[in-house]
Simulated scan of single mutants.
Amino acid sequence: MKTTEKISEAVVRRLPVYLRYLAELLGNGVQTVSSQDLGRRLDLNPAQIRKDLAYFGDFGKKGIGYDVEYLIEKIRHILKLDRDIAVVLVGAGNLGKALSNYNAYLNDNMRIVALFDSQPGIIGTAINNLTVQPMEEMVGTVQTQHVRVGIITVPGSEAQKVADDLVNAGVEAILSFAPAIIKVKDGVRVHYADFTTELQSLAFYLE
């Protein structure tokens, strides 16, 4: 990987897109793919794909393209998906429940290992073979299970407190579905998934 040039967030966000399509190709028995083929399928410039991958190494062969299985292995390594990554989810309401059920489709190395909620009616219920735990157990669970990623699906008014607890327990990255801006210390990464803002931005493009 190049260490003298900063890798942009846009590049990192495209890698899982490449990985998903490569996995489809491998499942269909395709052994090699060119950047042109990838570009047509993903509606991206082939030169951009080659540039993205070149940040991390020389994975293709001129006139042949990329070995699909080899490139999957390399992208998984770049994204650190070749090691176990434990995830916890805080907020087991309707959205949290849906995400927990989606857990079955995540890569085996990156899985939701624990669920938490503050509602007495939700605590103790089972979702996709996981029992919802009370919030009081979150810090201890994060530490004992060496959790590195947290998902927040609580109301916006509770998001900062939950984020603080996760970070203090040792979580290094947070995916927040809460409608609120979260402030965390340097070294902790926060990504937001906001359905409302995504829909509102789509409205701009309507005729």
Rank of each mutant, 00 (worst) to 15 (best):
V30S: 07
R111N: 03
A92Q: 00
V12K: 14
N94L: 11
L15V: 08
Q48I: 11
V149I: 12
L95F: 02
L206C: 07
G124P: 04
V12F: 12
I64S: 08
V147T: 10
L106F: 15
E73F: 08
S35P: 01
I64R: 13
V11A: 13
L71F: 10
E9D: 09
N109L: 11
D43C: 07
S201F: 02
K62C: 01
L99A: 12
Y18N: 10
A193R: 00
E158N: 06
V30W: 03
L15S: 05
G140Y: 13
R40P: 00
L71I: 10
K74T: 04
S118L: 05
V132L: 04
I64H: 03
G65Y: 05
T3M: 09
D37E: 15
V12N: 05
G170Q: 08
K2I: 04
G63W: 07
A114H: 11
I122P: 00
A169L: 12
N94Y: 12
M138R: 13
L202F: 05
V149Y: 12
D84C: 12
R50Q: 04
G170M: 09
A86P: 10
A169E: 04
V190D: 01
E24M: 13
R189H: 05
G121V: 10
G170S: 09
L166R: 03
R13N: 14
P120N: 10
E9L: 06
V188E: 06
P46C: 03
I122T: 12
G91V: 02
P155W: 07
K74G: 05
N168H: 09
I49L: 09
I85L: 09
R76M: 13
I122F: 02
Q31N: 15
K74V: 06
Y18L: 15
D82I: 07
L115V: 00
L81M: 14
K97R: 15
E73T: 08
L99Q: 13
N129G: 02
Q36S: 09
